[in-house]
Design a protein around this nucleic acid. Structure first.
Length: 323
DNA sequence: AACTCATACAACCGCCGGGCA
DNA sequence: CTGCCCGGCGGTTGTATGAGT
């Protein structure tokens, strides 16, 4: 007996999502939270399969997504992590807040792979390609790859000294892992070895992002979130103000960057790892909710309070892990 | 201006593993 | 223990866009 398809494919729409579909999905998730994805399309009035909805939300609609090309620093992190754990894009993505596995995977395939090859590094093994000519470029490569990092290290006064690409130790670890697993060790052993490989990352990156990992995002209780425009008697309600700083008013849970990190993020440097800035978020949100491309950004702020209330999460939404 | 090719990225597909009855 | 459901993951494909001729 064959496996049941994830959804009834007859009559379901495929291909690029329209603004209207995005709108419906966005509104549904923001109103009801993430629940059984299979039921989402029906409930949201979409002719899509649940899987497609999930993908769309995770890879495109999630408000906490970061946009634009990966910075050099993020790229470096991806390379480091790939060297440690291979094509485990979701794991890699979990170390880069605001980035999705799909995005990283695409970026790897389109940019980083080529870059590494050009630099004489095998993108699969992260070892120098066996070509004398390429050896000459190794030092340059190392310099180039480390440059942005070193630059940032100076700024951040942190040490990121573990570079698996050029650390023989890394390959030793890898070999060790292979050996242990090939001996017929249990999954537990494998997991332990993996942990050993991954652990040093936190020792180093910890200083950079203050130990942040999306796997370890502290759970924020619903009551801890202040949502503007939800009818409230609070005198501190920011609803009444006509401030244009929507995000400030929204007080969404934010990532806690280290002070050092924040200081870097404040630069207008391309290497920054910052989430959407207010404008990006507003434009996107406005577009999604109103079908407006942001030409009249004011619309969001002038919207009636009931419109903001779409953003209000009940406890259930949070229980489902929205955001 | 029209065409071709390359590139980037969104979306799909099939498989896997965890949870549950 | 078994089978099913569901979410998640990684590989692959499809499509839009830009660059080059």
């Amino acid at each position: 007996m064959g496996r049941q398809p994830c959804c009834d494919k007859v009559g379901l729409k495929k291909g690029p999502w329209t603004a209207d579909e995005d709108n419906k999905l966005m509104n549904f998730i923001l109103t009801n939270g993430q629940c059984c994805w299979r039921a989402v399309p029906k409930l949201a009035g979409l002719l899509r399969c649940g899987k497609s909805c999930r993908l769309r939300w995770i890879n495109y609609l999630r408000p906490d997504l970061k946009r634009g090309l990966l910075s050099e620093y993020e790229e470096k992190m991806v390379i480091d992590l790939h060297a440690k754990i291979g094509n485990r894009w979701s794991k890699i993505a979990s170390h880069l807040p605001g980035r999705t596995d799909n995005e990283i995977k695409n970026h790897w395939n389109t940019h980083i792979k080529k870059k590494l090859k050009k630099m004489g590094i095998d993108p699969v093994t992260h070892k120098p390609l066996s070509n004398n000519a390429t050896h000459q470029t190794q030092d340059q490569t190392k310099q180039q790859l480390n440059q942005p990092l070193e630059k940032e290290q100076e700024n951040q006064q942190v040490s990121v000294d573990f570079d698996p690409i050029f650390e023989p130790e890394f390959n030793q670890n890898k070999e060790l892992k292979k050996q242990e697993t090939s001996i017929g060790s249990s999954n537990i052993t494998e997991a332990k070895v993996e942990d050993n490989i991954i652990t040093p990352l936190f020792d180093t990156m910890e200083d950079v992002i203050n130990g942040f990992c999306t796997d370890e995002v502290p759970i924020i209780e619903p009551h801890e979130i202040l949502v503007p425009c939800v009818p409230s008697t609070s005198s501190t309600s920011t609803c009444s103000s006509n401030s244009t700083n929507f995000l400030e008013e929204l007080q969404l849970p934010d990532f806690e960057w280290s002070c050092n990190y924040n200081s870097v993020s404040n630069n207008n440097d391309a290497n920054n790892m910052e989430l959407w800035d207010d404008d990006d978020f507003i434009i996107s949100l406005n577009f999604l909710i109103n079908g407006d491309d942001g030409g009249d950004r004011k619309q969001v702020f002038d919207a009636p309070h009931s419109q903001y209330s779409k953003m209000a999460m009940d406890s259930e939404s949070w229980a489902y892990g929205l955001f």
